[in-house]
Amino acid sequence: MLRSLNINPDKCTGCLQCEMACSFENEGVFNPAKSRIKVFSFHHEGRFVPYTCTQCDEAWCLHACPVEAIKMNRETGAMEVLDAVCVGCKVCTIACPFGTVNYNQSTGKVIKCDLCGGDPQCAAACPTEAITYVDADATGLDKMRSWAAKTDNATHAN
């Protein structure tokens, strides 16, 4: 059973433990500026919304890539960027309608969430269970993915 990140913003306190865990896992430093998950803060509303790639079915990034540098990991379901193949054209960054692929100027490649190979550190670090890693079915993923559908270039007859 594939698992996925389930994000419940109502529980988020904005502590950024997830961002630190992510950057430490992927970059070796505690650096929210380099995190693949980002907590957006809505000061006026008093709300914090963690946000990252949903590994959407449409995989806009993967399909947009001209050189097959984004591949789906069959075990985790994550779309992974193959650094060695990525040429840094950034097409995936404009193709992902969720804004979750980002260009990293210092490496000339793109970065995105890869579920840490199946053990997402953000979820492990989250103190409030605002981010959990659960069976794909049990998540609010359908809801999240329905936004993806809104971006579809096609309507299907059936």
Partner: peptide
């Protein structure tokens, strides 16, 4: 500007 730029697509195409 490069961070989260794709969301512009989401906003436009999601209407």
């Amino acid at each position: 500007i490069t961070q989260h730029i794709g969301v512009l697509r989401g906003l436009i195409q999601g209407q």
